[in-house]
Design a protein around this nucleic acid. Structure first.
Length: 436
RNA sequence: AGUCUUGUGGUGUAAAGGUAGCAUGCAACACUUUGAAUGUUGCGGUCUAGGUUCGAGUCCUAGCAAGAUGACCA
């Protein structure tokens, strides 16, 4: 009768999408995700969430996860951050597919993509100033205006773009823009900037380039070049998705799919690299890995186990609504993990001497005490026991209330790993108690 | 001519028209072997108003609320 109902573990909405794709044989059943940090600071608890989701989702469906540095802005990015990022991900317990990848590895391909777009009449070089472009962009409630350079010939744009790349123009003189729709209700579709001029050394390509692609012209293209099937990002990129898809379609390249989910917010924790950097640079903390910082490195130094952080990210779930996770959940999981793996020792901070009057004066025996009651294989250690021992002052009360389960007159207590002690004390002078 | 997304116990997350569940939190009780331990019990919820349906958290309509979006950042 009682058919064993298959206990279907609930799927989050991304898993549902993936399983649907798998069912339809999309991408030959391949699942490939990526974690794309910008190397301009240390990873924090919010990144831990993105890392866990990306890596564990791929793991679950037998896929792979790339680690790709989103390094398209040479002014803010540093190699030292690349190292900290690799460190933190490894410490969290994840392994990326192959070598670390860089968006900067694709600068040549991206440059060719740009040329392709121009030749298709889908991008143009704009000589307007930043202010003019902002002005013409309009406002969310008002349509924008087309740039006078929008109708420039393909040949002229190709020539100008090549000369931008050759370093003929100063920073800000011109940009490359996609030709989409200046009246779109979506601001990101109002001829977004694809390339800007920056005469600045890059942490990896050094002085090789003086034009750099914008996020929208690097991220999706990198996803595509790597064959990423499911490109997960946070909700604020929802408005970028039409552009993400538009570029892939026009370029006729591998159709990665962007899926947005809500970032994790944790009570009392700042997850803004900008603000964390201020703490570091203002010397309010000793560094990105200060134990008070909500960075992965900081939490590591604070003693939080990686397993607890991973579990925290899992329990926070994956959904699209804004959330604020209570710190209590993290603390609960840290305790619970530490309970499993930490050895116990005894220490007395505020000692009170106890004399066990019916125990031989010159005897000392070694009693075995388990290292970890939650770990049967944790072994034991020997603790000496003799007539005079010390206990914590707060473990004794002369006139204890009913709820007090520790030492008190007329009570029996069991000493951890040792004997039951009947306390029929006769005389008490702190800091020494005499017990029969 | 704004657009998009999201509303389920205090918090987070499930329930694919059919018993609103799980976790955390809080409370009470239990406990002669550390505990911020463990065990048991309890508390507490579908944004609002209509509609469809035998039946609505779920579908429809209208509201309301919150968040995102106007960088040559990502």
């Amino acid at each position: 009768m009682s058919n064993v109902e298959e206990t279907k573990t609930p799927l989050n909405f991304i898993e549902q999408i993936i399983e649907e794709d798998l069912k339809n044989g999309k991408h030959e059943g391949r699942v490939h995700t990526r974690f794309p940090p910008e190397p301009n600071g240390y990873l924090h608890i919010g990144h831990a969430k993105a890392i866990t989701v990306n890596f564990e989702l791929a793991q679950k469906y037998g896929g792979q996860t790339n680690l790709r540095m989103d390094d398209t802005n040479p002014t803010t990015e540093k190699t030292s951050y690349v190292e900290s990022i690799m460190n933190d991900i490894k410490w969290l317990g994840f392994e990326w597919s192959g070598e670390v990848l860089y968006a900067s590895d694709y600068f040549s391909e991206l440059y060719e993509f740009a040329l392709t777009l121009i030749r298709k009449g889908l991008a143009y070089v704009d000589d307007s100033t930043a202010d003019e472009i902002a002005e013409m962009k309009g406002e969310p409630t008002l349509p924008g205006k087309e740039s006078p350079y929008r109708s420039r010939s393909v040949e002229e744009s190709v020539d100008l773009f090549q000369r931008m790349r050759a370093g003929e123009f100063p920073d800000g003189a011109r940009v490359l823009r996609a030709k989409v729709d200046m009246t779109s209700p979506n601001m990101h579709m109002r001829d977004p900037i694809l390339y800007r001029i920056k005469h600045e050394d890059h942490h990896r390509t050094a002085g090789e380039w003086c034009i750099y692609p914008m996020y929208d012209f690097a991220h999706g293209q990198s996803d595509s070049l790597e064959g990423i099937t499911h490109s997960l990002c946070s909700l604020e990129f929802r408005h970028h998705r039409p552009l993400y898809d538009w570029l892939i379609e026009k370029l006729e390249i591998f159709p990665s799919r962007q899926i947005e989910f809500a970032r994790m917010n944790v009570a009392y924790m700042i997850t803004s690299k900008r603000k964390l950097r201020k703490l570091v640079e203002g010397n309010y903390v000793t560094g990105w890995d200060d134990p008070r910082m909500p960075t992965i490195a900081g939490m590591r130094r604070r003693g939080y186990p990686a397993a607890a952080i991973r579990e925290f990210c899992r329990r926070a779930g994956v959904a699209k609504r804004d959330n604020l996770i209570e710190i209590e959940l993290l603390e609960f999981l840290v305790r619970s993990e530490l309970n499993k793996q930490a050895n116990r020792v005894m220490a007395v901070l505020d000692p009170v001497k106890v004399v066990i009057t019916n125990y031989p004066e010159d005897k000392t025996e070694m009693l075995a005490v388990e290292n970890n009651p939650e770990d049967p294989d944790g072994g034991s250690r020997d603790v000496p026991f003799s007539r005079e021992i010390y206990i914590e002052k707060s473990d004794f009360m002369e006139d204890p209330p009913k709820k007090f389960f520790r030492m008190g007159p007329g009570r029996n207590v069991r000493l951890k790993g040792a004997y039951i002690l009947p306390v029929s004390y006769t005389h008490l002078t702190l800091p020494t108690k005499r017990i029969v």
